[in-house]
Amino acid sequence: MTNHISQKLEERDRAGSTRKLLATNGLVDFVSNDYLGLSRSKTLFDRIKGYDYSKEVNINGSTGSRLLAGNSTSAQNLENKLAHLFKSEAALLFNSGYVANLALISCVPQRGDTILYDSLSHVCLKEGAFLSKANRFPFRHNDCEDLEAKLKQATDNVYIIIESVYSMDGDLAPFGDIIELAQKYEAKIIVDEAHSTGLYGDAGSGKLCALGLEENLFARVHTFGKAMGVHGAVVCGSKELIDYLINFARPFIYTTALPLHSLFSIDAAFDHLSENIELQKISKEKIFYFNSLFNQKIGKNENMLRMESNTPIQPIVVPGNARVKSIAESLQKSGFDVRPILSPTVKEGSERLRISIHTHNTEEEIAELINELAKHA
């Protein structure tokens, strides 16, 4: 085992793709998923502190799974609120988006069923598919012709798995075309709304609700650790689906539930966003400013190629692990927290700087970042 560990680490070192934990306190944030700045909001922090904890016995930890000691009226009230907010019949809380996706996809499709997932799906979606024992096949990213070809070969119950906003490319799924294919081939659609929740829709209900397409979906997963600035996740779907997950989703059954503070944080975050919905507009303005300035200062450049994205996720492709790491380190020395995304996390040759644009980034900070990037173009 020791030899195996050493060998795998040496392989990563040779490829220049070894991961290390990095603390960059004091740098300008261009890396986090805190798109709307809610994780740093003192107003939201004070709102969460103002909740009444006296009605619950366990105020620090939930003390068990939801099926044992971990359930509470606060959890059930929050699920009812979220179901209404996300225009869903029912909702079920999970400790994270990773766990929610893993639970949903691993236990609903059965042996003999078919899962078709976008090739750029997050690893938790792929691992859920693997654990389900269903037949599973990727289709080319956002390629509906490839998806249809695989739908024609699918067996038994068919599940199409996509994301609303893709975390590495920052682009959107072709929702209308995928829904049309799903209806044609009687497939069910599961959507991970992790990078959409908060940014779109009334009170942050996500892209699918904003487009009025939520009724065409089998299930959605909304994550709160990104634009909502807190923690946790929820699966939205029919009451029958939620009852099934309660009975068969192992990551739900055997996991200690979210503590009361997390429940209040989620509740407060959506109330806060409802009262400050202009943050969505500010986000769009900052993204437009970044894109416009990048095109002016750097433009189309094969050594530093900005992928088209109108979301806060702005990928700048810088081929090669060594080069992208070097540029990221230079940016950090200049005061900007920008991290490299290395292969094998992304395809070799598409290594990138994954820049996140936030409402709290000033135009001056954005301009200074682009000036620094231009030095390496």
Results as ranks from 00 to 15, higher is better:
50 G>K: 03
95 N>I: 12
30 F>E: 02
40 R>W: 05
25 N>P: 13
14 R>I: 10
30 F>Q: 02
84 H>F: 08
15 A>L: 14
10 E>V: 08
20 K>M: 11
92 L>P: 03
43 T>C: 04
99 V>K: 07
47 R>M: 15
33 N>C: 13
84 H>L: 10
97 G>P: 03
70 G>L: 10
98 Y>A: 10
44 L>M: 09
52 D>L: 10
28 V>D: 08
9 L>F: 05
90 A>S: 07
9 L>E: 00
51 Y>L: 00
27 L>Y: 05
97 G>V: 07
94 F>K: 02
44 L>S: 07
58 N>K: 13
68 L>R: 15
2 T>S: 05
21 L>F: 14
93 L>K: 01
24 T>G: 04
59 I>S: 07
16 G>M: 06
88 S>P: 07
56 E>R: 06
34 D>M: 11
65 S>D: 05
32 S>H: 10
6 S>H: 03
55 K>A: 12
14 R>E: 01
11 E>D: 04
47 R>F: 08
35 Y>A: 12
52 D>T: 09
42 K>C: 01
61 G>F: 14
16 G>N: 00
95 N>W: 04
78 L>S: 04
9 L>N: 00
41 S>A: 09
93 L>M: 09
4 H>I: 11
59 I>E: 03
96 S>C: 07
19 R>H: 00
60 N>S: 12
92 L>E: 06
42 K>V: 14
34 D>S: 15
71 N>A: 13
72 S>D: 02
5 I>C: 02
85 L>R: 06
38 L>Y: 04
84 H>W: 00
70 G>N: 05
33 N>F: 10
18 T>P: 00
3 N>S: 12
36 L>K: 12
30 F>M: 09
96 S>K: 01
78 L>K: 04
97 G>E: 01
35 Y>W: 08
37 G>F: 11
69 A>K: 15
16 G>Q: 01
36 L>D: 09
60 N>Q: 11
11 E>H: 01
